[in-house]
Design a protein around this nucleic acid. Structure first.
Lengths: 167, 167
DNA sequence: TCTTAACTTCACAATTTTCTGAAAGTAGCG
DNA sequence: CGCTACTTTCAGAAAATTGTGAAGTTAAGA
């Protein structure tokens, strides 16, 4: 048995939480995310309320307020978390809205757009009639195709989700 | 006018090629790829034959053979390029097969699978009946959904591609 | 079998990134 | 209006990453 009464502080088995947090963060890092944002994000994902304060994050991850600040700024820019002010306090909470965040994930759209731009430039400057130009044109077409497909896919997911989890 | 006769060596306007290579590589880096693999890959993508030798890569990018070796090993592991031995020579060629490489790109499948594993572990260890557990279960469901969709999408792309570019 | 062209591995130096402590900024509340 | 609780910014130390030169390995051709 590993069950126990809920301690007021962190709640649940801090050991298990930490294990998940570090493990999931490691996967995100491997996929290209910076370490600190990854850890902060994983911690939020694993929290029951889906939201933690700066101080809670710092304590749980054993890092300085400065580190939390930087990580959270990054995550907010990527729309993976939102910040909210606790009413009647200058304390801030960072929140992950279950679905909003993976919607953001598919909004790598910005990335795709930049790739497309670079490829278009390449086709132009190397010549659309050269072998290299044709290869890049095909790649470009692929990304444009994917762009459209992703939007449709998310639509299907929302329907699927509603059926499975309720609105 | 920037046109010129084809010099035997690099071919085309080396200036324009380099500009594309460094620009596209920069985008890949921003998306999480290491710098050297990104540069090597971009150089291959921009080559007319779609293939370059180790020496050509080193010269064009002004880097050591060691750097090329490391970059190419990574790219081959990701199935983004393939290596071929030039018959009757110990010289090796690295090649990007127009379509094979972006098929590989969608084979971030391996990445998705690892995320799914981490999430499943999380659901189990934090409890499927806790709020955090439910959030992770929903995220997990999303990734599983995406998994299936990507396969279908690639199928549609292949059809679309054939129509547009011919087999 | 020997020679040698080509690729790979490895230890280290240089660069870049990341995190911290301290100082500065901001906004609630008396 | 100031006090204080919190957050952000910034310079620099520590750590991680990256690319190099040199030595090691492999295999083609004589």
């Amino acid at each position: 048995m590993t069950e126990r009464a809920e301690p007021a502080g962190v709640g649940r088995d801090p050991e298990a939480v930490s294990k998940f947090v570090e493990g999931f963060a490691a996967q995100l890092v491997e996929a290209g995310m910076q370490r600190m944002p990854a850890r902060v994000f994983a911690a939020l994902l694993a929290s029951d309320s889906g939201s933690l304060t700066s101080a809670e994050l710092g304590e749980q991850l054993r890092v300085s307020p400065a580190a939390v600040s930087g990580a959270v700024r990054y995550l907010a820019q990527q729309h993976m978390v939102s910040r909210e002010r606790e009413p009647g306090s200058r304390r801030e909470r960072y929140r992950v809205h279950s679905n909003q965040w993976y919607e953001a994930l598919t909004n790598r759209e910005a990335v795709l757009k930049r790739w497309e731009t670079a490829l278009r430039d390449g086709v132009t400057s190397l010549g659309a009639d050269t072998p290299a130009g044709r290869r890049m044109a095909e790649t470009l077409a692929f990304f444009e195709f994917v762009d459209g497909e992703i939007a449709a896919m998310m639509e299907r997911w929302r329907a699927h989700r509603e059926k499975t989890f309720g609105a």
